[in-house]
Write a protein that binds this DNA or RNA. Sequence first.
RNA 1: GUGGUUGUAGCUCAGCUGGUUAGAGCGCUGGAUUGUGGUUCCAGAGGUCGCCGGUUCGAACCCGGUCUUCCACCCCA
Length: 458
Amino acid sequence: MAQKPSIAKGTRDFSPSEVNKRNYIMDVIKKHFKTFGFQPIETPSFENSDTLMGKYGEEGDRLIFKILNSGDYLRKVDEEVLTKKDSNSLTFKISEKALRYDLTVPFARYVVMHQNEISFPFKRYQIQPVWRADRPQKGRFREFFQCDADVVGSDSLLQEIELVQLYDAVFTDLKLEGVTIKLNNRKVLAGIAEVIGESDRLIDFTVALDKLDKIGIEGVSKEMGEKGISESAIEKASPLFSLKGTNLEQLNILGELLRESDLGTKGVEELTFIIEALESLGLQSANLKIDVTLARGLNYYTGAIFEVAAPEGVSMGSIGGGGRYDDLTGIFGLKDVSGIGISFGLDRIYLVLEELGLFPETADSSLQVLCVNFGDKEAMVSLKLVNQLRKNGIRADLYPSSAKMQKQMKYANNLNVPYVVLIGEKELEAHSFVVRDMIKGGQTEYSFNDVDQFLKQL
RNA sequence: GUGGUUGUAGCUCAGCUGGUUAGAGCGCUGGAUUGUGGUUCCAGAGGUCGCCGGUUCGAACCCGGUCUUCCACCCCA
């Protein structure tokens, strides 16, 4: 009996139009990755579990897709482990591989394994799918693409500046104007925790602080209290909750607040350097905003933290994120290699561009020229033209049968083909072809000797 | 992982307190139009009402389970 097919939760099929539009975004991102000097690598879809496990926190471990061992995987497991029914300890016995959860950890592994072939600083980009066993929501999938650019082997703050410019370049090129690049620094967060005497609860503190724009000052205070942060500490931190003014004004206030913390002061200095440099260099269309409440992201960030928010009015989580991690490769045995990277959330950028109608017409058309088929003789001549166009890199095709004109035109229309070529009896005799502009509606007749003129128009 | 929500034609959705043959718009196919798409007119095709089970004389509608969608939490691109 035939059963209705379906696809797994949080996954999607992509139709031609969607793939075209996704490629458009990817091509733009890739173009700028290259112009900024990044080189491509790829890593396997799945890694050994111990490469991934424990790198993303407890929550992350739960969201990693584990791959069952091959063969009779239960046979090797001790009776004791089986009877205890403890999933955590059993997992390691029956699963030794897992799907990649992000591109950063596999990259760190790559750097350590290939350290002798790599010239540092190493700038790499990587565009591949990642998998998370999360509950899907809008803009949140279990399989999605990340587009990462990372630099390892340089602790220069120029990298931070460059990566902000890279964000700006990509989003400007995509015509997605008005994105906000939020900037923070882990050292500032650690400094605050130090100054208020809650260094031990840095993570709890930052996770709560991160929710400020969502649950408000009261909500944040309440959550901090619940996590065991003292009232006086919350009180001390409260100026943070309502920081106002320009980026540099905010940094001044922060500098005052963190005067007694060396680490915090260092963080403020770093941010100030970055902000001043970028203000003097200028950004094309993105807004740059200091946001001390920005604490998202993985536990391994040690310096700068980035997050990109869609333009105002678009309800979408962050469309990009990143940061500096001073010792990511350390966990794989390579010490003192500083790295920094950013990621573009392809799938979310797609949804935002779609919502704002920002895809160019051409992004969704895979054919540039379609020849109408009027019959065998005409088709042969059309094919000659098609071949000539194809040799010039034009995406051209001939309708395969001499169906009704209406049907062929409709086909061209549905495929968003901008130019339809007509070679019928008349044109055959005149040794010419008629080009119909499907967007403007007009028609032009060319002699077969003037194909170049038509090519120029494309 | 917790709580909630959604599913009816290819798409967007109607469908009354459970009642006989489940509808609309768009799209699709054919025709008006044997060399012209996106506008018009006419006709037609297309549905195991997500799936499995239960209650009932009778279920798209009520109940249970399951899958999926979206939302909140958690976390995050």
